[in-house]
């Protein structure tokens, strides 16, 4: 359905996204994790045809057989909503505060599907029910500020679903929400993807949410896809040192803050910080922060090595192990 091959995005000479390869089929639930500057949001914007004007795209981005990497805005407009729709992090910022949420949800149906107002309203009602908004009739007439953060995020999901997209991209959909609300939104997105056989790309830095919502996962670092595989496999037994570092740095509820002797236990960290776009290392982009560096890491970019079916990582350690 959607295929990226060697898709790169350059700003000037710096590659903010490098050789992204990805295949998304109907019903796939893919998690994209990484920290700020990893390129995960840029990847989402590329899938929506919304990369900034200053970005230069190379490689292929094909949606339903059409190459969209260099497509015009007009072609994208036809694809958006029907093929891809997006849910953003901050539901208050994504909704027009001066419009009733019902009008916002109905608009794309009038524009893209040419429905009558009455038919669009009926569909909006059933969408609100589908995403779990109680008393939908009254809610349609409300303004964003009259709703809680969780309700607003549900409205945005309903809006994204308005034209039955094949792919729903959720960019940090739970970050601004309370923990238990986030949990319910995560479960909702997962359920919708299954029931509608819709593909879901779930972008988040929250490993717990990604673990709940997705089946496959891609780990990104500084514009590179460094590890991928089944979500349970990658999070359960990470291969790439960055993935390991990320999982290690995440505090664990089961581990107490003090050792038996009463000393505070420090968390494992990844030293340093993500390099800026203009100062990326030449070889592996994780070089300099990696705890197990080999001589070639600083100069040679590691190739993506497949270790099993649909599982692998871009790390010199993997090829090194093979040669032994």
């Amino acid at each position: 359905m959607i295929e990226l091959s060697n898709l790169s995005v350059h700003f000037g000479h710096a590659a903010a996204l490098r050789d992204a390869n990805l295949v998304i089929e109907r019903g796939d639930r893919l998690g994209v994790v990484g920290e700020s500057g990893s390129g995960k949001t840029l990847l989402a914007l590329c899938l929506m045809g919304m990369a900034p004007d200053s970005a230069r795209l190379t490689g292929q981005l094909s949606i339903d057989g059409q190459d969209m990497a260099r497509a015009a805005e007009r072609d994208w407009q036809r694809l958006r909503s029907r093929w891809v729709a997006m849910v953003f992090q901050e539901p208050m910022a994504a909704l027009n505060p001066l419009r009733r949420v019902g009008d916002t949800v109905i608009e794309p149906m009038l524009l893209h599907d040419g429905l009558t107002r009455r038919a669009a309203r009926d569909r909006a009602l059933s969408l609100f029910e589908e995403v779990g908004i109680p008393d939908p009739d009254r809610r349609l007439r409300q303004f964003p500020h009259e709703m809680s953060g969780g309700q607003r995020q549900r409205v945005l999901i309903a809006l994204a679903l308005a034209c039955n997209p094949m792919l729903l991209i959720a960019d940090e959909p739970t970050t601004a929400l309370d923990a238990n609300v986030a949990l319910r939104i995560t479960d909702l997105l997962q359920r919708l993807a299954r029931e509608r056989e819709m593909a879901l790309v779930f972008i988040s830095h929250d490993l717990a949410a990604v673990a709940r919502a997705t089946e496959d996962i891609v780990v990104m670092y500084a514009g590179d896809m460094v590890e991928r595989g089944r979500t349970a496999a990658v999070l359960g037994a990470p291969v790439h040192p960055y993935t390991k570092g990320l999982l290690g740095a995440r505090p664990d509820v089961g581990v107490a803050g003090r050792n038996a002797d009463g000393k505070r236990r420090r968390l494992p960290t990844i030293p340093g910080s993500v390099p800026p776009l203009q100062g990326l290392p030449e070889g592996c982009r994780f070089a300099g922060r990696c705890p197990v560096e080999l001589p070639q890491c600083a100069t040679q970019r590691p190739a993506f090595t497949q270790t099993e079916v649909a599982r692998g990582a871009a790390c010199h350690l993997l090829t090194e192990a093979r040669h032994d």
């Binding site: 920290e35 990320l246 420090r266």
Partner: peptide
């Protein structure tokens, strides 16, 4: 904060 930065700040507080 991002997860790895968060760990650094928590360690600093400790």
């Amino acid at each position: 904060l991002d997860v790895s930065v968060q760990a650094q700040i928590l360690n600093l507080l400790m």
